[in-house]
């Protein structure tokens, strides 16, 4: 564990807290992509159910995995049950087939072993790389976003961004290099760049997130 990875994981926790805070205080899920949230639940289920076959690295690791699986299911429940009337499915129209299909193909091409757990792990890595796209698509379509929603996306992007110095650190300090996680992680971070540009130039200067 190094500082970049720890701050990244912390940022991931903050993002989930921001999302729950937005939904429970406004009692709505307006502007939130159910599809992105469903993809994250699938990412966590396919990556973290390795707990079931004994992949226990540390208490930290196990507790985080359980938290991410549990909170993602709770978020799906909130969107689908109590806040269902506030969701507008007509703007959440990104085609999931392409993302899931692409991740499936990538997991068969790029994995460390042709075994069920390894292909599942690789699938979750590639799927996570693109899971934010339906959410960014909603922001692009509506041309604006509530500030709290942009803070949520920014915290998620920061989590991914911080994993890059973590990999550099691990490569030089531990000789650890995981090419699949690194390549998918860089793709994932690049997807956030446009968003971050507007977030830094507008939202952090007190303006509303609006596309030009």
């Amino acid at each position: 564990m190094n500082i970049f990875r720890f701050l990244g994981d912390l940022s991931h926790l903050v993002s989930i807290w921001l999302l729950l805070h937005k939904m429970t205080t406004s009692k709505s899920c307006t502007g939130i992509s159910f599809k992105t949230q469903a993809l994250y639940a699938l990412v966590f289920a396919t990556r973290y159910l390795d707990l079931l076959y004994g992949s226990w690295h540390s208490m930290y690791n196990v507790a985080m995995k359980i938290f991410f699986i549990g909170s993602s299911l709770y978020i799906l429940y909130l969107i689908k049950v109590p806040f269902k009337p506030t969701r507008d499915p007509a703007i959440d129209t990104f085609k999931l087939e392409y993302l899931v299909g692409g991740a499936l193909i990538m997991s068969l091409i790029a994995n460390y072993e042709y075994s069920f757990p390894e292909i599942l792990w690789s699938f979750s890595i590639w799927l996570e790389a693109v899971a934010i796209l339906p959410q960014l698509f909603i922001i692009q379509r509506t041309g604006e976003a509530e500030n709290i929603t942009t803070h949520y996306v920014a915290a998620l992007g920061a989590y991914r961004g911080l994993y890059i110095p973590n990999w550099l650190y691990r490569y030089f300090a531990e000789g650890f290099f995981d090419p699949i996680a690194v390549i998918a992680g860089i793709i994932q971070t690049v997807i956030y760049l446009d968003f971050f540009y507007i977030y830094f130039t507008k939202v952090l200067k007190g303006q509303k997130f609006e596309l030009p």
């Binding site: 994981d9 390795d50 460390y112 075994s115």
Partner: peptide
């Protein structure tokens, strides 16, 4: 070299 099943990152 990456060993399968040793994914310690989240």
């Amino acid at each position: 070299e990456k060993t399968p099943g040793q994914h310690d990152e989240l």
